[in-house]
Amino acid sequence: MTEGNFVDYIKIHTQSGKGGKGSSHLRREKYIPKGGPDGGDGGRGGHVIVKGNKEMWTLFHLKFKRHLRATHGGDGGKQESTGADGQDVYVEVPLGTVIRDTNTNKIIKEITEDKEEFIVARGGKGGRGNVHFKTSTNQTPRYAQPGIEGEENDITLELKILADVGLVGFPNAGKSTLLSVITAAKPKIADYEFTTLKPNLGIVKYRDFKSFVVADIPGIIEGAAEGRGLGHRFLRHIERNSTLLFLIPADADDIVKEYQILEDELRRYNPELLDKDRIIAISKSDMLDAELKEEINNSIKGDFQGMKYIFISSVAQTGLQQLKDILWENLNKQV
């Protein structure tokens, strides 16, 4: 999938079908001149339904669909025949899609399971035919119910990536390079900030044919929690990752301070993100000799007390197997 095909935010106007009207038909057959009412009910209007699809990774297929309309229910007929139901409209979305009311920004539903369905616009009920209104004092009612109008809703679909591990770091920290080395993913890589503008997913192959999913997400900048830079569009993608891998380059001016800034951005956006397991990888460590690495190790040991951290180099491919071991152990420690 190319970067331009990744769409994670869509606004759609949905309109369900109107219910069909009931029939006020009176039975008229040879030798039965006064057969009484036999009008059938109207059919239900079509629903607009959002459905989860585990094979999908993007909302790109909805990029040019701004309006979704279901068909109306058919009218009732004679001999108590019920009108046909309107045709439902299905909107397939990737797992991890959040449905919001566009006007209130309230979350309506989160789709997290394959083939899970949720009706976002319910079709109107069909009207009842005159056969339902026959009484002892009114043997030939000549009226029936009209169908109920359908619903119109404005919804927003937001995709939150479902991955086991989310890469967190400043722009140009080496996240895309790491993903390209430990997975088969081929993200765009260049030596400037914000190379990654869309999230990338990669499957890490582990021992004994096991695997887990890593998401390389656009880098954080200070103020991301307030929406600066890529802001909330980035931060919502790490809400579903069970483990956060903080990537800090070895040539950073202050490794501990850089981590604290990243941590603070997550706290301000959603404090619950800090309840997730966190692992720190100091990237680009091929730039360090043994003496400098030991010096950095001694300086950060107290600040990262209790947290797992590891020196890695994606270019020299050092520390990567140990990193995989740490991630796998962390993801499966409660299994």
Rank of each mutant, 00 (worst) to 15 (best):
G4I: 11
F6K: 07
V7Y: 10
Y9D: 15
K11N: 15
I12C: 14
I12P: 01
T14I: 15
Q15Y: 15
S16F: 02
K18W: 14
K21C: 09
S23F: 11
R27K: 15
I32E: 15
I32T: 13
P33T: 07
K34Q: 10
P37W: 06
D38V: 12
G42C: 07
R44K: 04
H47P: 00
V48D: 00
I49M: 03
I49W: 00
G52H: 01
G52A: 09
G52N: 04
W57S: 13
L59Y: 05
K65A: 15
H67Q: 07
D75C: 14
D75E: 15
Q79H: 10
E80S: 11
T82K: 10
G83D: 15
A84L: 10
G86Y: 08
Q87E: 10
V89D: 03
V89T: 06
V89M: 10
Y90T: 02
V91I: 07
V93N: 01
P94W: 04
L95S: 03
N103S: 12
N105R: 07
I107M: 11
E110F: 04
T112I: 08
D114T: 07
E116R: 04
E117Q: 08
V120N: 02
G124I: 03
R128W: 05
F133V: 09
K134P: 09
S136R: 14
T137A: 06
T137W: 08
N138H: 07
N138P: 07
T140P: 02
P141I: 12
P141N: 12
R142I: 13
G147M: 12
E149L: 08
E151N: 05
E152W: 05
N153C: 07
L157P: 00
E158Q: 13
I161V: 15
A163W: 00
V165A: 05
L167H: 01
G169P: 09
V181S: 07
V181M: 11
T183K: 01
T183C: 06
T183W: 01
A185N: 11
P187A: 02
K188G: 02
Y192S: 13
E193H: 12
E193W: 10
T196E: 06
Y206E: 14
R207K: 12
F209H: 12
K210Q: 14
K210W: 11
V214F: 03
D216Q: 02
I220Q: 01
I220V: 14
E222T: 12
A224S: 11
A225K: 02
G227N: 14
G229Y: 03
R236N: 06
R236T: 06
H237E: 15
E239C: 10
S242E: 13
L245S: 08
L247C: 05
A250P: 08
V256P: 07
V256K: 05
K257F: 05
Y259V: 05
I261N: 02
L262E: 07
E263P: 03
L266K: 05
R267M: 12
E272L: 09
D275Q: 13
R278T: 11
I279D: 11
I279N: 04
I280V: 15
S283F: 00
S283D: 10
K284Y: 02
D286T: 01
K293N: 12
E294M: 15
I296D: 03
N298L: 08
M307W: 05
I312A: 00
S313D: 02
V315K: 00
V315E: 01
A316G: 04
L320D: 00
Q322S: 06
K324Y: 09
N330P: 04
K333R: 02
V335C: 09
